[in-house]
Simulated assay, not measured.
Amino acid sequence: MSVQHTPPDTGPPQDTAGLTGEAHRWLAAARASAAAREAGWELRFAEAGRRCGTAHADPARVLLLAAARPDAATVTRLYRQGTAAERRAVLLALEQLDTDPAHGVPLVEDALRTNDTTLIAAALGPYAARHLDAHPWRHAVLKCLFTGVPVTRVAGLAARARGDAELARMLTAHAAERTAAHREIPAGLPHVLALTQEQ
């Protein structure tokens, strides 16, 4: 399966300040619809890319989710049935929605099993930093390194990596494997390894 590569790290999705007047009006109406839980708000969630443009679709969808405050079943359905872009927005919104880890963590873990680097990056936001167990979190950091997701996209990296001997072991083993195969060591690996040495 091919890997979709993430563009250079630009941090969280841009806000909606650059929207056209028409798109701003659409988003305001969509947020009101979502807040009122009107029947069509999920359709507006789906069409945000067309209405707001690709550059603003993520923050627009997150705003709609924040306004709607959907229950866990709806969040799960929007993720499972959504396009990659819609799934990404759900992942980005999990922290704001304060989703129960019993429902949110499986979505994060599902995204981390994919080879879509935009989903991997979205999955490793503040929600994962708070709720993802140590073992899958360590493997997620390694996955970032070998898929090219900048480790700066891993929320809470310094705090969680600090003093993590097991992560240090995994990183050292990965670096040794790459060296033995005459392959380049991922750029972020020395940085993360240095973090594990901090106390």
Rank of each mutant, 00 (worst) to 15 (best):
residue 62 V to I: 15
residue 62 V to L: 10
residue 65 L to T: 09
residue 65 L to D: 13
residue 66 A to T: 09
residue 67 A to E: 06
residue 67 A to G: 12
residue 68 A to N: 10
residue 68 A to E: 01
residue 69 R to A: 12
residue 70 P to S: 04
residue 71 D to F: 07
residue 71 D to H: 13
residue 73 A to D: 15
residue 74 T to G: 10
residue 75 V to E: 01
residue 79 Y to P: 05
residue 85 A to T: 12
residue 88 R to S: 10
residue 90 V to M: 11
residue 94 L to C: 04
residue 101 P to H: 02
residue 102 A to Y: 04
residue 102 A to K: 14
residue 108 V to D: 04
residue 111 A to I: 02
residue 114 T to I: 04
residue 114 T to D: 00
residue 118 T to E: 11
residue 123 A to F: 01
residue 124 L to F: 07
residue 124 L to P: 05
residue 125 G to P: 05
residue 126 P to I: 02
residue 128 A to N: 01
residue 130 R to G: 05
residue 131 H to S: 00
residue 132 L to F: 08
residue 133 D to A: 07
residue 136 P to T: 13
residue 140 A to T: 08
residue 140 A to D: 01
residue 141 V to R: 00
residue 142 L to T: 11
residue 142 L to E: 12
residue 142 L to I: 14
residue 143 K to G: 06
residue 144 C to K: 06
residue 145 L to H: 05
residue 145 L to D: 14
residue 146 F to W: 15
residue 146 F to M: 12
residue 148 G to K: 03
residue 152 T to D: 14
residue 152 T to E: 15
residue 152 T to Y: 06
residue 155 A to M: 07
residue 157 L to P: 07
residue 158 A to T: 07
residue 158 A to V: 11
residue 160 R to D: 06
residue 163 G to C: 08
residue 163 G to S: 12
residue 163 G to P: 11
